[in-house]
Write a protein that binds this DNA or RNA. Structure first.
Ligand SMILES: [Mg+2]
Length: 228
DNA sequence: GCGACAG
DNA sequence: ATCTTGTCGC
């Protein structure tokens, strides 16, 4: 539990205002809908930071529903923005796009480490990336960013809604494994809540994190050490 | 005005 | 996200 967060570099208020407006623009392009057909390939993506000035992003592609790994790629770039709650996409998405370009096998849908529409302006990194790539996406986050919920039962598979104060459904809180902290799953772009939840559950293999995100996180860490 | 705040 | 050993619970 991060009780205390050291104050990061001062965020330029003018830049924050501009990025926030960019999100409102991108938001108009988000489409929440069921996926046309069962995915053949599902990807997972995540980023790590070998140094405070370098971002390393990974994409892993798995065959669905067997989850055999088909491909994995990574790309590194200089960091251009500090972490600012609500603006994560502007820090990680640019490099994720470059990593995505390296894929020989393009996925039918992408599971992103972070939130989809469970965001103050409904533009979490999963929604943001989905719009820029125009590919179906959904987010799987380990922590809440916004919204309220009731703790789901401690047994694997328990689910409770993540909602806005006005009752709007932002996502679902899912217990992916007995007695471990739940995940926050929300659709990003060209995807809906039932699909995001269904695919998340279908990708569980005994760990807290579903395979796409778990493997992306694993390789983001491995490739980082490899640079040593 | 104060607290919260993905990765 | 990152640093970083042991330790507690299932
Ligand atoms: Mg991550």
């Amino acid at each position: 539990m991060a009780y205390y967060r050291p104050p990061g570099p001062p965020a330029d208020p003018i830049l924050v205002r501009d990025l926030t407006r960019q999100q409102d623009e991108l938001r108009t392009q988000v489409r929440l809908q069921p996926i046309p057909r069962e995915p053949q390939l599902i990807a997972g993506c995540d980023s790590s930071f070998p140094t405070p000035e370098t971002v390393l992003s990974v994409f892993v592609v798995l065959r669905f529903p067997t989850l055999e790994i088909v491909e994995k790629v990574y790309h590194t770039s200089p960091v251009t923005l500090p972490y600012i709650p609500g603006l994560l996409a502007f820090r990680e998405a640019p490099n994720l796009l470059l990593a995505y370009d390296k894929l020989q096998h393009k996925p039918d849908i992408i599971m992103v480490d972070g939130h989809g529409i469970a965001h103050p302006r409904r533009m979490g990194i999963a929604a943001h990336l989905g719009v820029l790539l125009d590919v179906p996406t959904f987010g799987v986050a380990k922590q809440r960013l916004t919204g309220t919920y009731q703790e789901p039962a401690v047994t694997k598979g328990s689910i409770t809604p993540l909602t806005e104060r006005n009752g709007e459904l932002l996502g679902e809180v899912i217990r992916s494994k007995d007695k471990v902290n739940p995940l926050f799953v929300s659709p990003g772009h060209r995807c809906d809540q039932p699909t995001a939840t269904r695919l998340t559950l279908a990708c569980l293999r005994g760990y807290k994190l579903p395979e796409p995100t778990r493997l992306a996180d694993h390789w983001a860490e491995e490739f980082k050490k490899e640079l040593w």
